[in-house]
């Protein structure tokens, strides 16, 4: 079947199988930041945005994004760098495999929550697993990143 969608604001017109998953569609189209970490929708590695909302691209049919806007980490590189610097500053990217999904969630949180508490941050990001860091470095990076946003404003 044929679908038309925007990935990172670029129009894609592609022929796909009806059961193709969005993650495979995106990786196939060259957006390899999107990672698969599990088969059970538990890890959050494949998080992307569909119409500005975070979803697990492993659990969305490519067919269903017809006409929609998909954003991957490649599409928000400036913000990824801005936040990524704080992550690097903590050494909290470690193996980096969870970073794309994690950062997509963080950037979405920044849009959705106003001045979140530590608890709210942990809640919002609890669907993003990380095995390397113990999450503390990520938390420090997020707090500094959000603080900088406030200072700048």
């Amino acid at each position: 079947m044929q679908i038309k969608c925007y990935i990172n604001n670029r129009l894609f017109n592609e022929v796909i199988e009806p059961d193709m998953l969005l993650i495979d569609f995106l990786r196939h189209t060259g957006f390899t930041s999107v990672k698969r970490g599990c088969d059970t929708a538990n890890c959050g590695l494949c998080t992307v945005w569909v119409n500005e909302k975070t979803v697990l691209s492993c659990s969305v049919l490519a067919a269903s994004v017809n006409g929609k806007h998909i954003t991957t980490l490649e599409g928000v590189e400036d913000e990824a760098i801005a936040f990524g610097k704080f992550v690097a500053d903590e050494g909290a990217e470690q193996c980096g495999y969870c970073s794309p999904g994690f950062i997509m969630s963080v950037l979405s949180m920044k849009r959705e929550l106003n001045d979140p508490t530590e608890e709210e941050i942990k809640h919002y990001l609890s669907g993003n697993l990380c095995r390397c860091t113990g999450y503390m470095g990520q938390l420090r990076a997020i707090k500094k990143f959000l603080q900088q946003g406030k200072d700048g404003a």
């Binding site: 490649e74 936040f83 690097a88 500053d89 050494g91 990217e93 970073s99 794309p100 950062i103």
Partner: peptide, 22 residues
């Protein structure tokens, strides 16, 4: 010194650096 990891920015911007990416 707390030097940034050499690969840090490639990792946080999702560059194709892992086995399946290449």
């Amino acid at each position: 010194q707390s030097i940034d990891k050499l690969d840090a920015m490639a990792l946080v911007t999702g560059k194709p650096v892992y086995t399946n990416d290449i």
